[in-house]
Nucleic acid binder design. Structure first.
Lengths: 203, 203
DNA sequence: GCCGTTTTCATACGATCGTATTACATACAA
DNA sequence: TTGTATGTAATACGATCGTATGAAAACGGC
């Protein structure tokens, strides 16, 4: 069963091309060319272009989801774990720049959201909200809706990764530069800490 | 000079359709049909589909940019003005839901960013950073890179607006509901305040 | 070695795309 | 009233799209 060889190359090529050109902007012909496969290979292995898109999404979302979950489940003070999750977001996006772009294209689509993306986002958000709620119970994080606070935290690394090129062109912030990326990461981590921390008086 | 009639309808139709279906997903035929114009109207009035896209972007970005600038230039404590800017982001996006979608499609494009979007984003970011820097000089906002802090602030309303549908499907947060939207707005405003505020001791 | 299954390949089809071309209608200046 | 912009309309062109079809090739169990 040579199920893997061509099928794998198709998914890898699809991840690259969908990320750069979007769903509409990527043709099956371009994908099969990039994967050194025949034009009919996508139809044969996945049935349709849409099915290949979903498969590509599942491929990239899974590991990301697992990594965030692992970070959330670590030991230590909740505020530290939140900062750790923030850094993990930045790191994972830096290592896999294709993810923000794919997420972006999914967000841009008005259609029903592909399942792997939906469940992945839900899982990451839930993990972060859980850590925040834990900190609230322990008194180290200020009161408030933990789910909404989790959105405020997660929105930052995601948005800044999504706007990578935009920020470079519009305000001259180059995330390809290592020092810049570190400064940005630590600024967001510090902001998250300050935004969550309980006020000094433990009344 | 009947320059306006058809041309205006084309821009309005383009704004609607580009926002829903993206650049690639919107055909000149769909736009002209929606605008009750002839197929050749886009080529005649704008020269190309890309030029129409830029014109549509300029149409929606301009007023948004002016509104944020007005909010930033108000009198009052910087922390209050930052919160005001946050609320303005949410309000404007709620009133013009087409803006986040159009921005999204621009972000998703790997190509050179259209000028109206670039300058609009730069202006909004600069306005926010200026207010933050002012608060730092006055001692009400904690030290840090004002430009990066401005990114942390702006990322939240933008991202949450962009993810409108996603948040609804993935974590059941319905921004069409007025109470939910208010809670979200105030949560983000409070988060921004807490994240920026100087620590109690004015050493 | 043979046969049924799986995978690859070349090609064709109908649809839709952006744009160019050409003709027609309307307005205003001379 | 005639000439000239200016806008609208109908249609055609070449390109590309996603998918279907059927033959060729490779593979695995016997």
């Amino acid at each position: 069963m040579n199920d893997s060889e061509t099928k794998t190359r198709l998914i890898q090529a699809a991840i690259r091309l969908f990320a750069v050109h979007g769903y509409e902007g990527t043709s099956i012909r371009a994908i099969t060319r990039e994967a050194n496969a025949n034009l009919g290979a996508v139809t044969y292995h996945f049935g349709s272009k849409a099915a290949l898109f979903e498969a590509a999404l599942a491929e990239v979302v899974g590991p990301f989801r697992e990594r965030i979950a692992a970070e959330a489940n670590q030991a230590g003070p909740p505020l530290d774990r939140v900062a750790g999750i923030v850094r993990t977001f930045f790191e994972h996006f830096a290592e896999h720049p294709v993810i923000p772009q794919l997420i972006l294209h999914v967000l841009a689509s008005p259609q029903h959201m592909p399942e792997p993306v939906r469940s992945g986002l839900a899982a990451n958000h839930a993990a972060l909200a859980r850590v925040i709620a834990e900190g609230q119970q322990g008194g180290t994080i200020r009161p408030g809706d933990a789910r909404l606070m989790a959105l405020s935290i997660a929105a930052q690394p995601v948005m800044l990764a999504l706007m990578r090129h935009v920020l470079s062109q519009a305000i001259g912030l180059d995330q390809d530069d290592r020092a810049t990326r570190t400064a940005l990461t630590e600024s967001v981590a510090a902001f998250a800490r300050a935004g969550l921390a309980a006020t000094g008086d433990p009344s």
